[in-house]
Amino acid sequence: MGFKLLSKLLVYLTASIMAIASPLAFSVDSSGEYPTVSEIPVGEVRLYQIADGVWSHIATQSFDGAVYPSNGLIVRDGDELLLIDTAWGAKNTAALLAEIEKQIGLPVTRAVSTHFHDDRVGGVDVLRAAGVATYASPSTRRLAEVEGNEIPTHSLEGLSSSGDAVRFGPVELFYPGAAHSTDNLIVYVPSASVLYGGCAIYELSRTSAGNVADADLAEWPTSIERIQQHYPEAQFVIPGHGLPGGLDLLKHTTNVVKAHTNRSVVE
């Protein structure tokens, strides 16, 4: 069995187990497998329904001669939608809004960016022009300005110390501490036991640490421990890039980060 097929099978099995364990909360999309990078042309966006009122959005972007996937989250909030992270750029984010209108038909009224990198804030200006209120932590807003990236308009308070959590509509926002970046936030959907790890969490097929220019490698494993301790009931975990899975993604990420750190020390 090929690795790609095995990865998709694991996603399907995880979703099936969740649907059985929580039949009222989960209505997993039966329309197909989780979209992969090879299936999404740059400039297009796919939506994948995880649970009743919960979707991931998947886009792709060219970077350094390669094409990478990027995940975000959409959560229903009454007759409105909360968006977590842009679709990595203005063109993708405009396509995301169009796809949401086509498939869901509810307005996106608020959006949260989970850290300051372009795959999370690139497209904020498109959201703002569409009347979406954009939010991020003060740290993310400051770092985005320093980096020359787009800056969300509103500040999220109460997320300055490791372990801080605040309720934001249908989700809980959690600051686990520094990891992929010093400002990275985690998003949890309690009604569906869905954990969105953003770039602080890796997919299972990833074996290298990737972009760690703004990471705190020493603190990252401790931050992941905080996530595990705060959300032990999480059933569906979405990484910032690639295929979702279960809580095993947290341990896998820790292993990859520690291996990278150990290699760096040896070198």
Rank of each mutant, 00 (worst) to 15 (best):
M1I: 04
M1S: 03
G2T: 10
F3Q: 05
K4L: 04
L6K: 05
K8G: 13
L10E: 08
L10D: 06
L10T: 09
L10H: 07
V11Y: 10
Y12S: 13
Y12W: 10
Y12C: 07
Y12L: 14
L13A: 08
T14P: 13
A15C: 09
A15P: 06
A15E: 07
S16E: 11
S16L: 10
S16Y: 14
I17D: 05
I17Q: 05
M18Q: 06
A19G: 10
A21P: 06
A21M: 10
S22G: 09
S22C: 10
P23K: 07
L24K: 06
L24Q: 06
A25R: 09
S27L: 09
D29P: 07
S30V: 09
S30Q: 06
Y34A: 08
T36D: 10
T36W: 07
V37R: 09
V37A: 07
S38E: 08
E39W: 11
E39Y: 15
E39T: 06
I40V: 10
I40T: 09
P41V: 12
P41M: 09
V42I: 12
G43H: 10
E44R: 12
E44H: 15
V45P: 12
V45F: 03
V45E: 03
V45W: 02
R46K: 06
R46V: 13
R46L: 10
L47N: 00
L47M: 13
Y48I: 10
Y48L: 07
Y48T: 07
Y48K: 12
I50S: 03
I50D: 02
D52L: 11
G53H: 07
S56I: 05
S56G: 09
S56C: 10
H57K: 00
I58T: 07
I58E: 09
T60G: 10
Q61F: 09
S62W: 08
S62F: 14
D64A: 09
A66P: 10
A66Q: 13
V67W: 11
Y68L: 09
Y68F: 11
P69I: 07
P69F: 15
P69G: 10
N71E: 00
N71C: 02
L73F: 03
L73C: 03
L73Y: 00
I74L: 07
V75W: 02
R76M: 09
R76C: 04
R76A: 13
G78M: 09
G78W: 11
G78L: 10
D79H: 15
D79Y: 15
E80T: 12
E80Q: 13
L81K: 00
L82C: 14
I84Y: 00
I84T: 03
I84H: 00
D85R: 00
D85A: 00
T86Q: 02
T86F: 00
T86P: 03
W88M: 02
W88Q: 00
W88K: 00
G89C: 01
G89T: 15
G89K: 04
K91L: 13
N92Q: 12
N92S: 12
L96K: 01
L97V: 05
A98F: 08
E101G: 12
K102T: 14
K102A: 15
K102M: 14
I104N: 01
I104P: 00
L106Y: 06
L106N: 15
P107Y: 15
P107K: 14
V108T: 14
T109F: 10
R110P: 04
A111S: 15
A111P: 03
A111L: 10
A111C: 10
V112K: 03
S113V: 14
S113H: 15
T114H: 00
T114S: 14
H117M: 00
D118A: 12
D119Q: 00
R120Y: 02
G122V: 07
G122P: 04
G122Y: 05
G123V: 03
G123E: 03
G123W: 03
V126S: 13
V126E: 10
R128W: 07
R128G: 10
A129L: 14
A130Y: 06
V132E: 02
A133Q: 12
A133F: 14
Y135F: 08
P138G: 14
T140F: 04
T140M: 02
T140H: 03
R141F: 04
R141S: 06
L143D: 02
L143S: 12
V146R: 12
E147Y: 13
E147N: 13
E147C: 14
G148R: 11
G148D: 14
N149G: 13
N149A: 12
N149F: 12
E150I: 05
E150N: 15
E150R: 04
E150K: 07
I151W: 10
S155D: 07
L156T: 04
S160Y: 12
S161D: 15
S161W: 13
S161F: 15
G163W: 09
D164L: 07
D164C: 04
A165K: 13
A165M: 15
R167Q: 09
R167G: 06
R167A: 08
G169V: 03
P170S: 09
P170A: 07
V171G: 02
L173Q: 01
L173M: 06
L173Y: 02
F174C: 02
F174Y: 15
Y175C: 02
G177Q: 02
A178G: 09
A179R: 02
A179G: 11
H180N: 00
H180T: 00
S181G: 01
T182S: 08
T182I: 11
I186M: 10
V187P: 03
Y188D: 01
V189P: 00
V189Q: 03
A192S: 06
A192D: 07
V194F: 02
V194L: 08
L195I: 09
L195M: 11
L195A: 01
Y196A: 05
Y196W: 02
Y196T: 01
G198A: 05
A200K: 02
A200L: 10
A200T: 11
I201Q: 02
Y202N: 07
Y202S: 13
L204S: 12
S205Q: 14
S205Y: 14
S208L: 12
A209Q: 09
A209N: 09
A209V: 11
G210F: 04
N211H: 15
V212C: 05
D214F: 11
D216F: 06
D216Q: 12
L217K: 07
A218G: 12
W220D: 00
W220L: 02
P221C: 13
T222Q: 12
S223W: 01
I224W: 01
R226A: 11
R226F: 11
I227N: 04
Q228D: 05
Q229M: 13
Q229I: 06
Q229W: 13
H230K: 15
H230L: 11
H230C: 04
A234K: 03
Q235D: 15
F236S: 06
F236A: 07
I238Q: 02
P239N: 01
P239L: 01
L243C: 06
L243R: 12
L243Q: 08
L243N: 13
L243A: 12
P244I: 06
P244W: 06
G245W: 02
G245F: 00
G245P: 00
L247V: 10
L247K: 05
L249H: 01
L249P: 00
H252N: 15
H252I: 03
T253I: 03
T254I: 07
T254A: 10
T254S: 11
N255E: 05
V256C: 04
V257M: 15
V257N: 05
K258Y: 09
K258N: 10
A259G: 10
A259V: 11
H260Y: 11
N262F: 06
N262A: 08
N262L: 06
R263M: 09
R263Q: 11
R263L: 07
S264F: 14
S264R: 13
S264W: 07
S264E: 10
V265N: 05
V265E: 10
V266Q: 12
V266Y: 15
E267Y: 06
E267H: 15
